[in-house]
Deep mutational scan, measured.
Amino acid sequence: TTVKLGDIKVTFDNPEKAKKYAQKLAKIYQLTVHVHGDTIHVK
């Protein structure tokens, strides 16, 4: 599962960890989390 934020891409083996990371980023940057299959976009 890949978390994308602009040019930053972080890949996790564990989808749950990816989701938590995405939510953490979203909170920090006051953005929202969008899940598209294996990719989680923070924008």
Rank of each mutant, 00 (worst) to 15 (best):
Q23A: 11
K20Y: 09
K9D: 06
H41E: 14
A22I: 06
T2R: 05
I40P: 01
K27F: 11
Y21G: 01
H34L: 12
V35A: 06
A26E: 04
Q30W: 09
K4W: 14
Y21A: 05
N14H: 08
T11W: 14
V3H: 02
F12E: 00
H41S: 09
A22Q: 01
K9Q: 10
K19D: 05
H41K: 05
G6Q: 04
D13Y: 08
K9P: 02
K20A: 12
D38P: 07
D13I: 10
Y21I: 06
H36V: 14
L5C: 15
H34D: 09
T1A: 07
V3Y: 00
Q23G: 04
I40K: 01
A26M: 04
K4C: 15
T11G: 04
Q30H: 13
A22Y: 04
H36R: 10
D13N: 10
A26N: 02
G6W: 10
I8D: 01
V35K: 05
I8E: 02
E16C: 10
K17G: 06
K43G: 14
G6S: 04
I40S: 02
F12T: 00
Y29T: 05
T11Y: 14
K17Y: 10
E16H: 08
A22C: 08
A22F: 05
P15D: 05
L25M: 07
L31W: 04
P15R: 09
V42C: 07
K9V: 13
K20I: 10
Y21V: 06
Q23V: 08
A22M: 05
T39Q: 06
V3Q: 02
H34N: 07
T1V: 12
K20L: 11
V33D: 00
V35G: 01
V35H: 07
I28D: 08
I8F: 15
F12W: 02
L25R: 00
A22P: 01
Q23W: 08
Y29N: 04
V3F: 00
K27D: 12
H36D: 14
T11V: 13
K17S: 12
D13T: 11
E16D: 10
N14Y: 04
V33Q: 01
Q23L: 11
L5Y: 09
Y21N: 02
I40M: 05
T1H: 08
